[in-house]
Structures are given as C-alpha cells and as structure tokens.
Amino acid sequence: MHNIYNFPLVSALISMILAQVIKVPLNLFLGRTWNPALAFSTGGMPSSHSAAAASLATSIGIMNGLDSSLFAIAAVVCAITMYDAAGIRRHAGLHAALLNRITQNLSQITRDKTPAAHLKELLGHRPLEVLVGLVLGVVISFVLYYIIL
C-alpha cells in the first residue's frame, strides 16, 4: 500500500505541535496563569521533544515492524532524546537559575556596577514531563494510524 504522505513524519510533527499547544491550557489549569508564549518555548509539561521522538519511533514500528532496522534506529534516537531532555538540558536550566541568582546578588552588592544575567532557565524537563510526552507521542501515532490509514 502506497501512502501519499510520510506517516511517521506527519505523526511526529502533529505530536510535537500538540504537546507545545497543550502547555498553555495545562499551565492555566495547574498554575492559574495564562501564558501563550509557552507554546513557543522549551521545557514544561509535556515534553514536545519526547512526544515527537516517541511518535516517530511508534509510527515506524507500526509501518515497518518492531523488528526492523528503522524502528531500532528511531527507538535509540528516542531514548537519547528523552535522556537529554530530562538529564543534560534540565541540569543546564538548573545551572542557569543558579547563575541568575549569583549575578543578581553580585549586582546588588556592587550597587548595579555589575549587571545581573538573565539566562533562560526553563530548558529541560522533569522525568514526569518526559514520560507524559512519551505517552502522548505513542497515543497520537496509534490514533492517527487507526483514523487515517
């Protein structure tokens, strides 16, 4: 059966976009603040990186089988992406928060002769945010498969 579009690519993109869009109402519900900019930023619940990678791997698994080399590649890339989102990128965000506090204190001590840094702190994800992104990506792939194909 020939498809007129690339199912894994479409599934991954839809999962990524949906994960980004979900951040805004979820933040309103949980944090009681309306912040549409969250749809265009990194970090937060759910992880769009994890959703996209999981959706890509799931779609490839559906189309080519779980024993295919393509699925193996996608699964490994998915695992690396999720590890990076919850590990390295999250710790970089924690470091940015600490540096922001240090430079803010230094600026106060030097009476604003040393400007405070304003580094972006929300870079990575908590493990739960990565897990929710994973589940979202898998579910989106199966829903799209059964609706479209």
Rank of each mutant, 00 (worst) to 15 (best):
A74Q: 12
D67A: 07
A74N: 07
F71K: 00
I80E: 00
A52I: 09
V76L: 12
C78Y: 01
I80L: 08
A51P: 08
A52W: 01
S68M: 04
G61D: 10
I62W: 15
A72Y: 10
I60T: 08
I73V: 12
A74D: 10
I62K: 02
T58K: 00
A53Q: 02
I60D: 07
G65P: 05
A53W: 02
A52T: 07
A51D: 06
S69H: 12
I73G: 01
L56A: 04
I60Q: 03
I62V: 13
A53Y: 00
L66Q: 11
T58W: 15
S69E: 08
A53L: 07
A52S: 14
V77W: 12
F71G: 02
S55M: 14
A52R: 04
S55N: 10
D67M: 08
A52V: 09
A53C: 03
S69I: 00
A57S: 13
A72F: 06
A74V: 11
I60V: 14
I62N: 05
I60M: 05
L56D: 05
N64I: 03
I80K: 01
T58S: 07
G61K: 11
A51C: 10
I62H: 13
A74E: 08
L66E: 11
I73S: 05
C78P: 05
C78G: 02
A54S: 15
A54V: 08
L66D: 06
L66H: 14
V76W: 11
F71C: 00
N64M: 10
S69K: 01
L66F: 15
A74R: 12
A57V: 11
A72M: 08
V77E: 03
L66I: 15
M63D: 12
S55Q: 14
A57W: 15
G61H: 13
S59R: 09
A79D: 00
G61R: 11
A79F: 09
S69T: 03
S69N: 05
L70V: 00
S55D: 07
G65D: 09
D67Y: 14
V76C: 02
C78H: 00
N64E: 14
A79R: 00
V76D: 01
N64K: 15
